[in-house]
Amino acid sequence: MAETIKKEEKPVADKITVGHVHMSGCTGCLVSLADNYGGLLTILDKYADLVYGLTLADVRHIPKMDVALVEGSVCIQDKISVQEIKETREKAAVVVAVGGCACYGNITRFTRGGQQNQPQHESYLPVGDLIKVDVYIPGCAPCPQLIRNVCVMAYLLLKGNKDQQELAKKYLTPLMLLADRGTEACGCDLMYDVVNQGLCMGCGSCAAACPVRAITHEYGKPNVNREMCIKCGACYAQCPRSFFNFDVIPEFEGIMDAIDAALK
């Protein structure tokens, strides 16, 4: 599998086009993308043209693009937001929900309006409640390395040879299934879908993943402080008993080497 990526050592002239669509998010997701540091420059040199992203570029209206990285949930009382998210679906071949807000609502799940100067801005929905989303990257803030991996895999999927496409598809499948699973997430998922299902084995991944330290382990099993949880979805997605794909993860050494090489 390592060879699969390495064959493509020379940068392919044909880059994919990527845009960053900012809904009601905090731009922390974009900062995470930028936190690939030197790697971001390599991605832009070799694999992806940034064709849209109000924070980074002057393009004011959503263009056609291969991959839209959508950050933030959608305020359904804000006409522009609703219009832009629909436009994003029309213009992008692949829509990736980046971060807890886009995937699950995150802190905007607590929003209830009544605030100056737009007290009617009361309802925020995860992107997947309004359009079909292809890939999920949960977490708050999402992890730069996961965003990077998805970008590289999206490139292989759209521009790679047959083997590369195969690998990319396998890698992205669980993140696509997460998108299919729905738009609700909470620390409670660990109970509902892992512990209650007789699947928890006490690894501790969930606690490590939680960005607000809401999870502790009591005799090896997770305890979620529900008054800290912000509903980012990181814990469940990180849990090896939410998904574990034997056709990808055992190849970790080759895949990690290959991604490193691709970003050199």
Binding site: C75, T111, Q115, N117, Y124
Partner: peptide, 15 residues
């Protein structure tokens, strides 16, 4: 023209 997420309002009653 960023939608108002109303953090000051949603904070009320929380810890």
């Amino acid at each position: 023209i960023t939608p108002v997420r109303g953090v000051e309002k949603l904070a009320l009653g929380k810890t």
